[in-house]
Protein backbone atom coordinates (compact mmCIF):
# COMPACT_ATOMS: atom_id res chain seq x y z
CA UNK A 1 0.00 0.00 0.00
CA UNK A 2 1.35 3.41 -0.89
CA UNK A 3 0.57 5.83 1.95
CA UNK A 4 -1.39 8.90 0.93
CA UNK A 5 -0.08 11.15 3.67
CA UNK A 6 2.92 12.19 1.56
CA UNK A 7 4.21 13.02 -1.93
CA UNK A 8 6.49 11.11 -4.32
CA UNK A 9 9.20 11.74 -6.91
CA UNK A 10 9.93 9.99 -10.18
CA UNK A 11 13.19 8.77 -8.58
CA UNK A 12 11.12 6.79 -6.04
CA UNK A 13 11.63 9.03 -3.03
CA UNK A 14 8.93 10.24 -0.67
CA UNK A 15 8.53 13.49 1.25
CA UNK A 16 6.17 13.99 4.17
CA UNK A 17 5.47 17.52 5.37
CA UNK A 18 4.97 17.97 9.11
CA UNK A 19 4.66 21.69 9.83
CA UNK A 20 7.95 23.36 8.97
CA UNK A 21 9.72 20.02 8.70
CA UNK A 22 9.91 17.76 5.64
CA UNK A 23 10.75 14.13 6.29
CA UNK A 24 12.51 12.42 3.37
CA UNK A 25 12.71 8.72 2.57
CA UNK A 26 12.70 6.17 -0.24
CA UNK A 27 9.75 4.15 -1.47
CA UNK A 28 9.24 0.42 -1.06
CA UNK A 29 9.77 0.09 -4.80
CA UNK A 30 13.20 1.75 -4.53
CA UNK A 31 14.18 -0.43 -1.57
CA UNK A 32 13.18 -3.55 -3.46
CA UNK A 33 15.02 -2.51 -6.62
CA UNK A 34 18.21 -1.92 -4.62
CA UNK A 35 18.01 -5.33 -3.00
CA UNK A 36 19.41 -5.93 0.46
CA UNK A 37 20.50 -2.53 1.71
CA UNK A 38 23.76 -2.81 3.64
CA UNK A 39 24.65 0.80 4.40
CA UNK A 40 23.04 4.20 4.46
CA UNK A 41 25.43 7.14 4.24
CA UNK A 42 23.42 9.67 6.24
CA UNK A 43 23.92 13.40 5.64
CA UNK A 44 25.40 15.57 8.39
CA UNK A 45 22.94 17.40 10.59
CA UNK A 46 23.04 21.11 9.68
CA UNK A 47 23.87 20.31 6.06
CA UNK A 48 22.15 22.62 3.58
CA UNK A 49 20.33 20.82 0.80
CA UNK A 50 18.67 22.08 -2.35
CA UNK A 51 15.96 20.51 -4.48
CA UNK A 52 17.57 17.81 -6.64
CA UNK A 53 20.69 17.42 -4.46
CA UNK A 54 21.89 13.91 -3.78
CA UNK A 55 21.91 14.18 0.00
CA UNK A 56 22.35 10.52 0.87
CA UNK A 57 23.90 7.38 -0.61
CA UNK A 58 22.30 3.98 -0.15
CA UNK A 59 24.42 0.89 -0.69
CA UNK A 60 23.50 -2.69 -1.40
CA UNK A 61 26.10 -5.43 -1.84
CA UNK A 62 26.50 -4.83 -5.57
CA UNK A 63 25.09 -1.33 -6.15
CA UNK A 64 25.08 2.20 -4.87
CA UNK A 65 22.36 4.74 -5.38
CA UNK A 66 22.03 8.45 -4.70
CA UNK A 67 18.91 9.65 -2.90
CA UNK A 68 17.79 13.09 -4.04
CA UNK A 69 16.10 15.79 -2.03
CA UNK A 70 12.73 17.13 -3.04
CA UNK A 71 13.02 20.12 -0.73
CA UNK A 72 15.48 22.91 -0.06
CA UNK A 73 16.53 23.73 3.48
CA UNK A 74 18.68 22.54 6.34
CA UNK A 75 18.94 19.00 7.69
CA UNK A 76 17.83 19.08 11.33
CA UNK A 77 17.66 15.38 12.10
CA UNK A 78 18.79 12.08 10.59
CA UNK A 79 17.47 8.62 11.30
CA UNK A 80 20.43 7.24 13.20
CA UNK A 81 18.78 3.85 13.58
CA UNK A 82 19.70 3.25 9.94
CA UNK A 83 23.38 3.46 10.84
CA UNK A 84 23.28 0.21 12.75
CA UNK A 85 20.30 -1.35 11.01
CA UNK A 86 20.19 -0.37 7.34
CA UNK A 87 17.88 -3.34 6.67
CA UNK A 88 15.05 -1.32 8.24
CA UNK A 89 14.77 0.44 4.88
CA UNK A 90 14.01 -2.90 3.21
CA UNK A 91 11.59 -3.94 5.94
CA UNK A 92 9.63 -0.71 6.26
CA UNK A 93 10.57 1.89 3.67
CA UNK A 94 7.60 4.11 4.46
CA UNK A 95 8.10 3.89 8.21
CA UNK A 96 11.75 4.94 8.09
CA UNK A 97 12.68 8.49 7.17
CA UNK A 98 16.30 9.19 6.22
CA UNK A 99 16.53 12.87 7.03
CA UNK A 100 14.29 15.61 8.36
CA UNK A 101 14.74 19.00 6.72
CA UNK A 102 13.58 22.39 7.92
CA UNK A 103 12.50 23.49 4.49
CA UNK A 104 12.22 26.74 2.62
CA UNK A 105 10.95 25.32 -0.65
CA UNK A 106 9.33 22.11 -1.91
CA UNK A 107 9.69 20.76 -5.45
CA UNK A 108 6.65 21.54 -7.58
CA UNK A 109 6.57 18.33 -9.63
CA UNK A 110 5.71 15.81 -6.90
CA UNK A 111 3.06 13.12 -7.28
CA UNK A 112 0.43 12.07 -4.81
CA UNK A 113 0.00 8.40 -3.91
CA UNK A 114 -2.48 7.75 -6.69
CA UNK A 115 -0.31 9.37 -9.34
CA UNK A 116 2.77 7.52 -8.07
CA UNK A 117 0.93 4.21 -8.23
CA UNK A 118 -0.03 4.96 -11.82
CA UNK A 119 3.59 5.97 -12.53
CA UNK A 120 4.79 2.63 -11.14
CA UNK A 121 2.28 0.74 -13.23
CA UNK A 122 3.43 2.59 -16.30
CA UNK A 123 7.05 1.72 -15.51
CA UNK A 124 6.31 -2.01 -15.34
Amino acid sequence: MIPNDRKYTRDHEWVKIEGSIAKLGITAHAAEALGDIVFVELPAVDKDVAIGDGYCVVESVKAVSNVYSSVSGKVVEVNEALDANPEKLNEDAYGQFIAAVEFTEVADNLMDAEAYEAFLAEQE
Partner: peptide, 10 residues
Protein backbone atom coordinates in the same frame (compact mmCIF):
# COMPACT_ATOMS: atom_id res chain seq x y z
CA UNK B 1 33.31 -6.92 1.50
CA UNK B 2 32.28 -3.25 1.62
CA UNK B 3 32.62 -3.39 -2.15
CA UNK B 4 30.22 -0.52 -2.71
CA UNK B 5 33.18 1.79 -1.95
CA UNK B 6 35.05 0.48 -4.96
CA UNK B 7 35.46 1.49 -8.59
CA UNK B 8 33.70 -1.49 -10.14
CA UNK B 9 30.47 -0.45 -8.42
CA UNK B 10 30.84 3.26 -7.73
Amino acid sequence: TLQAREQHIR
